[in-house]
Computed example of a mutant assay.
Amino acid sequence: MLENFWFNVKIGIDHIIDKNGYDHLLFLLVLAVPYVFKDWKRVLILVSIFTIGHSISLVLGAYDVVTVNGKLIEFLIPITILITAIYNVFTAGKKDRGNKVGPLFLTTLFFGLIHGLGFARYLDMISDNSLMFLVEFALGIEIAQVIIVFVVLFLGFMCQTIFRFTRRDWVMVLSSIVIGLVIPMIIQSNLLNP
């Protein structure tokens, strides 16, 4: 039983760190890059809200309660990354960023719902769609996300203390790089190129 639990958790972890599915990594990067270590609780809450969103749509998609065109989801996932990265560019260095909790959390939840539909498409390839498997899979995803977010926070700390990047420059540069990576993903999506 425990062996099966860890196997399912590992499927979730592997899905996040899969080099072919780096879109999820890019979203986590732009979600976490504006923050520093002292904000770790807020970042953890954001990531958990994202997990709640994609877990809800994962369950709904896995049980065919919700079905969405796969091409649309593959188009919308990079759009969520692009919107988050652009938001970072326009709010980089602004002092009141942390005060607007509601809209940021709701947007993260909504984007999680979109990403979860992508996970549900992945799970169509796996025969086990039991609720226990979905919970264990989601736990693996959450573990991988938390690790990635702490890596982003650590890299931000290193660049801002050792290499003397300003926080604003760190957010602008990484968010701009992500924008440059997702625009081709959007252009090459099957929705735009049937």
Results as ranks from 00 to 15, higher is better:
Asn4Glu: 15
Tyr35Arg: 00
Gly118Pro: 08
Ile45Asp: 12
Tyr63Ile: 11
Val66Gly: 09
Ile148Ala: 14
Leu29Glu: 05
Leu58Gln: 05
Gly112Lys: 01
Phe110Cys: 12
Tyr35Leu: 01
Ile162Cys: 07
Pro103Met: 11
Ile187Phe: 09
His24Gly: 09
Lys95Thr: 15
Ile114Phe: 06
Trp170Pro: 00
Ile83Trp: 03
Ala138Ser: 15
Val173Lys: 08
Asn193Ala: 09
Asn20Leu: 13
Val149Met: 06
Gly98Trp: 00
Leu29Gly: 08
Glu136Gly: 04
Ile73Asn: 10
Gly118Phe: 04
Leu60Gln: 06
Val68Ile: 15
Val89Cys: 10
Gly93Gln: 03
Gly61Ile: 00
Ala144Met: 06
Pro103Trp: 13
Val9Asn: 06
Ile11Phe: 13
Ile114Glu: 08
Leu153Asp: 01
Asp64Ser: 15
Asp128Ala: 03
Ile52Asn: 01
Gly98Glu: 12
Ile79Asp: 05
Ile56Gly: 10
Gly70Phe: 02
Leu82Tyr: 09
Leu109Met: 11
Gly93His: 03
Leu109Gly: 14
Phe163Trp: 12
Gly98Ser: 10
Phe154Asp: 05
Leu28Ile: 11
Ile183Gln: 02
Pro78Asn: 02
Lys19Glu: 12
Gly61Asn: 05
Glu74Phe: 04
Gly12Thr: 05
Pro184Tyr: 07
Gly93Ala: 07
His115Gly: 09
Leu82His: 09
Ser55His: 03
Gly112Pro: 03
Val43Ala: 07
Asp39Pro: 01
Thr80Glu: 00
Ala120Val: 06
Ile179Val: 14
Ser130Leu: 01
Leu192His: 05
Asn99His: 10
Glu136Leu: 13
Ser189Ala: 07
Ile187Gln: 03
Leu131Ser: 12
Phe75Tyr: 12
Lys10Cys: 07
Lys100Ser: 13
Asp64Phe: 12
Ser55Asn: 06
Val33Arg: 00
Gln160Ser: 12
Thr67Pro: 00
Ala120His: 06
Trp6Leu: 15
Ile147Glu: 02
Pro34Ser: 09
His54Asp: 02
Val101Trp: 14
Asn193Val: 13
Leu153Cys: 02
Leu72Val: 14
Ala138Phe: 03
Val9Phe: 06
Ile86Asp: 05
Leu28Gln: 05
Leu155Ile: 13
Gly21His: 04
Phe119Tyr: 14
Thr84Ala: 10
Gln188Met: 11
Pro78Cys: 03
Ile79Val: 15
Glu142Cys: 03
Asn129Glu: 01
Ile11His: 13
Leu46His: 03
Val135Tyr: 10
Ala144His: 04
Val146Cys: 08
Asn69His: 05
Thr166His: 03
Ile81Lys: 00
Phe37His: 09
Ser48Ile: 08
Arg167Cys: 01
Ile162Asn: 10
Met132Thr: 15
Ile13Leu: 14
Ser176Pro: 01
Ile52His: 00
Gly21Trp: 04
Phe133Leu: 10
Thr166Asn: 04
Leu139Ile: 13
Ala120Asn: 05
Val152Leu: 04
Leu28Trp: 01
Ile45Met: 14
